[in-house]
């Protein structure tokens, strides 16, 4: 299979209540790229990423049009299982993502749905937990973990499916600074294409060389994260603000490492 990791063309979508969320979205993400998806609340960011694995949109029986290709495979009903393996979605609230009695069962849920059994399944679970440094907590119940640990397990549940594209919805929200940094270390060490929704602009700059800026259901800017964050007029026009005292030109980003 060839082709870009994600290719979205003229994507339009309205919710069943008539509220239109996407007004023609076009973008392409190449393999191995790390891209941040920025934008104010209500811009349609989460709606967009729920399209990438066919949860929303015409594939799921909704109203909308446009074309999505993941790693060269078109998003059609008959490819849905394959697409959902290729696109790993990490939701914002880990309590939504972790629904099984123990960490191990939860990480095994995805690969088990792919048909893995026995030792192969155990290996896959262990491998995913090692990637996020949670292998010693496999037998715990999710509610015994700290919030940061739960977020990491949520990432592992998706990594266990060996996705080609990892999509994260606000990965740094509600984390304390140490947990936020630990998660950044884990994400930076993964060898996958990354698309990350975030309001945490320094986080976007730290992890993603490129950013998409979304507002009103459209992509309004696409470029280097540093250039976007440095453009004060663009930022102000779309309700984005840098933290107090943060200068995007003064800190190292992923392009130098």
């Amino acid at each position: 299979m060839s082709g870009p990791a994600i290719q979205v063309e003229r994507l339009v979508f309205a919710y069943p209540d008539g509220r239109q969320a996407l007004f023609g979205v076009d973008f392409t993400v190449e393999r191995g790229e790390r891209v941040a998806l920025l934008g104010p609340n209500g811009a349609g960011k989460t709606t967009l990423v729920l399209h990438l694995n066919g949860i929303l949109g015409s594939v799921a029986g909704g109203t909308g049009s446009g074309r999505i290709q993941i790693g060269g495979t078109g998003l059609h009903r008959e490819h849905l299982t394959e697409i959902r393996r290729k696109v790993g979605l990490v939701f914002q609230d880990p309590d939504d993502q972790l629904f099984m009695p123990t960490v191990r069962d939860d990480v095994a849920f995805g690969p088990a749905n792919l048909g893995l059994r026995g030792a192969e399944l155990d290996d896959r679970v262990h491998e995913a937990l090692v990637q996020v440094g949670m292998q010693d907590h496999a037998d715990l119940a999710p509610h015994h973990l700290s919030f940061g640990q739960r977020r990491r397990v949520a990432v592992a549940t998706v990594l266990a499916m060996r996705p080609e594209v990892l999509v994260l919805d606000e990965p740094s929200s509600n984390l304390d600074p140490a947990a936020r940094r630990e998660l950044a270390d884990i994400l930076a060490g993964l060898d996958v294409t990354l698309l990350m929704i975030t309001h945490d602009l320094p986080y976007a700059l730290q992890l993603c060389e490129r950013s998409l800026l979304m507002d009103g259901g459209r992509i309004v800017a696409d470029g280097k994260t540093r250039d976007l964050l440095g453009d004060a007029d663009l930022m102000a026009a779309h309700r984005l603000e840098l933290p107090y005292g943060f200068d995007p030109l003064s800190v190292p980003g992923p392009e130098r490492s």
Partner: peptide, 16 residues
């Protein structure tokens, strides 16, 4: 939301 998360990981109506 949990159901969405389950479907995203390939849930088709049978729990492992």
């Amino acid at each position: 939301r949990v159901h969405l998360a389950m479907r995203s990981r390939g849930y088709t109506g049978r729990m492992p």
